[in-house]
Simulated scan of single mutants.
Amino acid sequence: MHPISTAAKRKPEPIMWTRRELDAILRVYGRFVAQGEWKDYAIDGLKAEAVFSIFRRHSEVPMYAVVKTPADANRQGQYKVVAMGGQILKRGHDLAQVLRVFDKKKFQVID
């Protein structure tokens, strides 16, 4: 038997947002909070992705989720914005560009 190294025994670290990524997301979030559109958020660091969920009210399911999936970085981009029904609204390699989906004039908050 070969001894298992301590690195092999440890659980993999969850995927999480960097400070720069959170700053970009919170700027958009703060704008909609100031308009009274969004009321709450949740941040989850999971095994394969990081999720920033956006809620209209505290007790509801999230209206939108900003998702970071590093495994998709070389394909369609590691960032995406997903609507409540699972529809991907925008996807890409640059978080700031993906978050611009919320800047569109035709963008409306679903009630």
Rank of each mutant, 00 (worst) to 15 (best):
residue 2 H to Q: 10
residue 3 P to L: 14
residue 3 P to F: 12
residue 6 T to A: 10
residue 8 A to Q: 10
residue 13 E to F: 12
residue 13 E to P: 12
residue 17 W to R: 02
residue 19 R to G: 11
residue 19 R to K: 14
residue 21 E to V: 04
residue 22 L to I: 01
residue 22 L to F: 02
residue 25 I to L: 01
residue 26 L to S: 04
residue 27 R to Y: 14
residue 29 Y to V: 00
residue 29 Y to Q: 02
residue 31 R to A: 12
residue 31 R to N: 09
residue 32 F to L: 00
residue 32 F to K: 00
residue 33 V to W: 01
residue 33 V to C: 10
residue 33 V to Q: 08
residue 34 A to L: 09
residue 34 A to T: 06
residue 34 A to V: 07
residue 35 Q to L: 14
residue 37 E to C: 13
residue 38 W to L: 06
residue 39 K to G: 15
residue 39 K to S: 15
residue 40 D to Q: 10
residue 41 Y to L: 12
residue 41 Y to E: 11
residue 42 A to V: 06
residue 42 A to I: 06
residue 43 I to M: 02
residue 45 G to Q: 01
residue 45 G to M: 03
residue 46 L to Y: 13
residue 47 K to P: 09
residue 49 E to Y: 09
residue 49 E to H: 07
residue 49 E to R: 08
residue 51 V to K: 01
residue 51 V to P: 01
residue 53 S to Y: 02
residue 53 S to T: 03
residue 53 S to A: 04
residue 57 R to M: 11
residue 58 H to V: 14
residue 59 S to M: 13
residue 59 S to E: 13
residue 61 V to C: 11
residue 62 P to R: 05
residue 62 P to G: 04
residue 65 A to C: 06
residue 66 V to S: 07
residue 67 V to Q: 02
residue 67 V to E: 04
residue 68 K to R: 09
residue 71 A to L: 09
residue 74 N to E: 15
residue 74 N to G: 15
residue 75 R to V: 08
residue 75 R to N: 13
residue 75 R to Q: 12
residue 76 Q to H: 09
residue 77 G to C: 07
residue 78 Q to A: 10
residue 78 Q to G: 08
residue 80 K to L: 10
residue 82 V to N: 06
residue 92 G to Q: 03
residue 93 H to W: 11
residue 94 D to P: 11
residue 96 A to D: 15
residue 96 A to P: 10
residue 97 Q to M: 14
residue 98 V to W: 03
residue 102 F to K: 05
residue 105 K to R: 12
residue 106 K to T: 09
residue 108 Q to C: 14
residue 108 Q to K: 15
residue 108 Q to R: 14
residue 110 I to S: 07
